[in-house]
Design a protein around this nucleic acid. Structure first.
Lengths: 206, 206
DNA sequence: CCTACCGATCGGTAGG
DNA sequence: CCTACCGATCGGTAGG
């Protein structure tokens, strides 16, 4: 019953919080933020309704925590890859993006969470509206930096400017993921995105 | 008090139903199907809760009716345009699509409705799951027919096959609409989609 | 973290 | 027998 053993109250709290946030991914992914209920999330996590309230006092706190957890994992991936600076390593940045897409098919629950919440959050009153607005802006900047670097090297074949290409890239990924969730057999995400990238950056075909 | 006067019970029913479905577009667009309430929809439509239930006995009936109304309007547009047969008039079909995109910016409520509901409906248990699965499939077939016809004429410059191009086109439209709803100034839907179409079908630049 | 609750509101139905 | 609703309330469940 001490910290070094991996047991004790702190270890237990971390474990319970992990189970709760996993339950949130499923619950929010299935019915969205408005459709999910605290009592259902508690049941999925194997604790009582009030036990859940001990860890997260409000429903919004669950939403914030689950989105922050996703961000931390994404950030950790980007740090481990060479894709951290798209202006210096644009090809690696775009290739890293493709890796993430392929990987995301192994975690359909996460994809559904993002798809359902981002749709719900288009309304300005949604608690995650600002989160998604900033996330989209940030991802577009990432791609804009990569495409700008490639344009300066003369490796961009597309007629569209880097900013438009960035919005197109994000739109393509999100749109294909939505289609894939409805029909996993007839939508080939990786090849579609690869076709788009190669048409814009011929050097990526190598 | 006869049919030709535009008054009478039937005219009143049609008018009330129209107001109800307008309220549904707003309510479902803001909080999705699960988040919307019958009493809020009734209030928006200016009738009582039970008055609403007289016209639509269940919440799901409201969802079905509002989606069918959208389909009828889309069908009416396609009939009025030359885009009805993408295999015979592929260029007109793709140009007609661009017109719809431009027009959709004038109806952000409809765009939000589609965006929120399609995200929510990714879960198999959602009452509109099958609707969106079939709608996506149908739209992809429309584009596939257009791109296939262009490929046979040798007017397709893209390396991607018609089926993949169709999925990409739908993904681009849906993805850009989602981004536009979060940031209407920095996302140029029409120019982005036009850039994509021209890169795939050079003949469209004319 | 549980049992025991609250003010309110949910989707749907009663009689008139 | 039809329509277009109403005020009140049902048994359950919401977030807290």
């Amino acid at each position: 019953m001490n910290a070094s053993s991996g047991r004790g109250p702190y270890a237990k709290t971390a474990e319970v919080r992990r189970r709760i946030l996993e339950a949130c991914v499923d619950a929010f992914g299935e019915t969205g933020f408005y459709g999910a209920t605290m009592k259902d999330i508690a049941k999925r996590a194997g604790i009582s309704h009030t036990g859940l309230l001990h860890h997260f006092a409000r429903k919004e706190d669950l939403l914030i925590a689950v989105l922050e957890l996703r961000d931390e994992r994404s950030a950790r991936f980007l740090e481990s890859a060479d894709a951290i600076d798209p202006a210096k390593h644009p090809v690696e940045a775009l290739r890293g993006m493709l890796t993430v897409i392929v990987d995301s098919e192994l975690q359909p629950g996460i994809m559904e969470l993002h798809c359902v919440l981002s749709g719900e959050a288009t309304s300005p009153g949604h608690p995650a509206h600002t989160y998604f607005a900033e996330r989209y802006r940030s991802v577009r900047r990432f791609y804009t930096d990569a495409y700008t670097a490639l344009a300066e090297r003369g490796e961009l074949s597309s007629a569209a400017d880097p900013k438009t290409l960035a919005a197109m890239t994000l739109a393509l990924i999100n749109g294909l993921q939505a289609q894939w969730l409805f029909d996993r057999d007839s939508v080939k995400m990786e090849s579609a995105i690869h076709a788009f990238l190669v048409s814009a950056v011929p050097g990526l075909a190598r």
